[in-house]
Structures are given as structure tokens and as C-alpha cells.
Design a protein around this nucleic acid. Structure first.
Lengths: 216, 216
DNA sequence: CGCTATCTTGACCATAATCAACCGGAGTGG
DNA sequence: CCACTCCGGTTGATTATGGTCAAGATAGCG
């Protein structure tokens, strides 16, 4: 489903060999990687862990615009825009690969394959954004949460018990719901025996039930 | 604000001169330009009029994913995907410029400027999609409608009285609201003297009031 | 003039937000 | 070791926002 490899085959090491000076980073949960509106100097690839991209509202609330997993790229809006469009925050301990945007731009001018790879990621980001628009615009809370959990699980195909570093508030900010409502629905799912949860991990016991629920 | 020119300076005629065989089309309001899931052979630039990109839901409802104005490009997802991701429907009489995707792809391989132009459009589409996610996820009906009307107006900077071919249902499908609720809010805006509406045109009498309302 | 679409309005209902209290685990300090 | 606090989560009661259903109103159109 997802192309997990960085740059569709070009790993960080290979980029490095191509003349990029790539910096590996490891950051703790909760660390802000960059701020919305900040001058964009770097883009990142996410090697391990999860990251949220957040837009802050005037009234202090926040909306999570995108959630990133192993293999995802972010901070690339700086290729054309001067400033970052979101705040990027690590949800768990993350391993990143930092790329200089100026170098990356030059590299992508020279190597069509790199440009192509970025382009494809961009396209997938747009598709995902559009399917979230449909979700938020046309589906109810329960269905949104159900689809979300299933999608989250897709990001960890090998795991039976998923890493799940999201708080109820994160879920709410992603799904456009209050923390209380998220909590109620999660409790409901658990009561029905569809889920099990403990200390940052999640187990989906009855994906089919969730799938049916997400259809409604 | 918006880059209105096609291909950031490359007009349809210029593309034609570059060896693209570009077909000009004129279609009536309500015409379906292509269907979701259909094999994508062509992309389009919108020379005149407005188009909606729609995703249909299982239960028969629809969500408008994007609204397009003069100068916008659409159908380009076919560059990488085989199939169209939305249904494109003309809201008014439209003048289109049809581009063969295969040719366009080749052209964009040869001319970095073309590729760059498409890339930038893609990026703007993503930004708009993300701001709609914030809208749908975090703002109330009134605020969403207010911001939408102001944005619609931006697409017609020269007009005092705007072309407004959207039905209440279109508005609802775009904003994630029922037609009735849209109707109520529109009536409210009109009662407060912020808008005037007649026969497919809209006049924004008090943009400042709308702006304040859209902030809440 | 009558037909049909769309729009409007009202009454009622459902979904989800808000407000508030409480629970429970992880740290912290005595 | 135990109280205490803090934070996130849960639950309940109440409110509000917006959806649904149904009945008119309006306007384009043959």
C-alpha cells in the first residue's frame, strides 16, 4: 500500500553518497521539530516513530493536518514556500534524517528520479488530504474514528499490537472532535471488544467490526 | 494572490506551439467532464467558468473536494495514477483547454519549466486542501460559509457582483452541511444586510462583517 | 397557467460540545 | 512507604449546533 522506502529507493545513505549532507537525528517525544511560519531551511524524512503536523488557530486550539509514519517526508513545502506551513511535533521518540533544502533543490534539478519521488509523495499527500476532507465533511464521529484506527494500523503491518502514542486530545485535534467525545467512543469500542489498549499500544481485535462501523 | 495564468506564463496557445495538441472546449452548465474511477487520458485547464471536483460516497451523498476557477488545472492526477480521483462537473458554462496526458508528461520531462509549473499548482492544491481540513475540523457552519464566500470573491477580483452558480446543495456538499442549514445561514446573512443575491450572482455588501464572522 | 426545481421556514431530533466532577497512575517529596 | 499532586482519561448532566422531516414559497419554463 504505502511506499515505505525513502525517495522511492534512494535511502538516506544513498542520498549522502550523491553529495547531500544528510544529518541523522534522534528526538524525544513531544519535541517540536519546526514551527509554523518559521523560515524553512530543512526537510526531513521520518525513519522511525510518528510525527504530527499541526496548524494553530487564532483561539488557541489546534488542528492536526497530517500524521506521519516511518518513511514519510515532511517540511518539503519549503522547496517553494519560504516558510513552514505547519508545526511539526514528535509524538514518540523519532529518528529523523535532515536534508538541506537548498541542496535538495539542486539535487532534484539534476536528478529527475529525485524530483519524481518528491512529486509522487506530494500527490499522495494531496490524495490523503482529500480523503480527510470527505471524512470531516460527510462522516460521523464514530465512523471517522473507526477509519482512522484502521489506517493507523496499516502503517504498522507487521505489528499485532500497535505503537499508539496519541493522546485523546491528539485524536480529537486530528478528527475534529472534543477529547471527551473521542474518549467516549474509544471506551465504547473497547466495551464492545473491538479494541484493547494499554500504555501507548493498541490492539485491534475485530478489524471487521471496525470496518463495518466505518462504512456507516 | 492566485496565479491566474496557465502554466505560470505558458498559455494554451504557447503549449500548442510547443507541440502539444490542445483542444479548446465549451461545455454547458451541469456537464460531467470526467468520472471518478474513469481512465484518465486528459487533463484540463479552466479558461472560463467554474468546475466542481466531487467524490461520491457509498450512501449516495457527495462531497465536493475542490472548486475551480479561471486559470486552475485539473485532471492532472492522471499523470501518476491511472484513474481520475474525482468526478469533474461544470457549474456554469465553461471554456476548457484539453491536454493529452501522455503528451503532457513527455513535455514536462523535456521542459523543467512546465514540470515546475505543475508542481507548484499541486503544492497550492495541497495547501488549500489543508486549510479546508482546518475549516471542516475546527470551525462552525457560519464561519465556514463566511470564509468560503470571501474566498469565492477573491476568485473574481474585478467583479463587484460575483458570478455565483452554486446551489444550496453544492454549498452544503462543499462545506459539509445540509442544504437546509446552508439556506438558513445565507438567509441570515442577507437579513443582516451582508449579502445580496439574485439569479446566479452574489454581491458582498459588507465583507468586513463577514470577515469578523469567519474569525469566530 | 401549471409544473417542477430550488429555496425557505418551522418543528423536532440527534449528534457532539461544554462544563464539571471524579478516577487512576506516575512522579515527587516528606 | 505513604500522602500529594499532576495529568490524562472517563463519565455524567446539560446545552448547542446542526440534521432530518415536512410543509410551503418562489422562480424558471414549457
Amino acid at each position: 500500500m504505502r511506499e515505505r522506502s525513502i525517495f522511492a529507493g534512494l535511502s538516506g545513505e544513498e542520498l549522502c553518497a550523491l553529495g547531500m549532507d544528510v544529518v541523522d537525528l534522534e528526538l524525544g517525544a513531544g519535541t517540536t521539530i519546526y514551527h509554523e511560519g518559521e523560515d524553512a531551511c530543512c526537510a526531513y524524512t521520518l525513519r522511525e516513530g510518528a510525527v504530527k503536523l499541526v496548524k494553530s488557530l487564532a483561539d488557541g486550539r489546534a488542528q492536526i493536518v497530517r500524521l506521519l509514519h516511518h518513511g514519510d517526508l515532511f517540511g518539503f513545502e519549503g522547496l517553494h514556500r519560504q516558510r513552514h506551513q505547519h508545526t511539526a511535533i514528535a509524538l514518540s521518540t523519532v529518528k529523523l534524517c535532515r536534508l538541506d533544502l537548498r541542496e535538495l533543490d539542486q539535487l532534484s534539478q539534476r536528478l529527475p528520479v529525485v524530483r519524481e519521488a518528491i512529486f509522487r509523495r506530494w500527490q499522495r499527500a494531496l490524495e490523503e488530504a482529500e480523503s480527510r476532507i470527505v471524512d470531516l465533511g460527510a462522516r460521523r464521529a464514530e465512523a471517522r474514528l473507526a477509519t482512522f484506527l484502521l489506517q493507523w494500523a496499516e502503517a504498522y503491518p507487521q505489528h499485532r499490537s500497535l505503537p499508539f502514542p496519541l493522546t485523546r486530545q491528539d485524536l480529537g485535534e486530528f478528527l475534529g472532535l472534543s477529547t471527551e467525545h473521542v474518549s467516549r467512543i474509544m471506551a465504547d469500542f473497547k466495551r464492545r471488544g473491538w479494541l484493547r489498549e494499554s500504555r501507548g499500544t493498541l490492539e485491534i481485535l475485530m478489524p471487521q467490526a471496525l470496518r463495518e462501523d466505518s462504512a456507516s
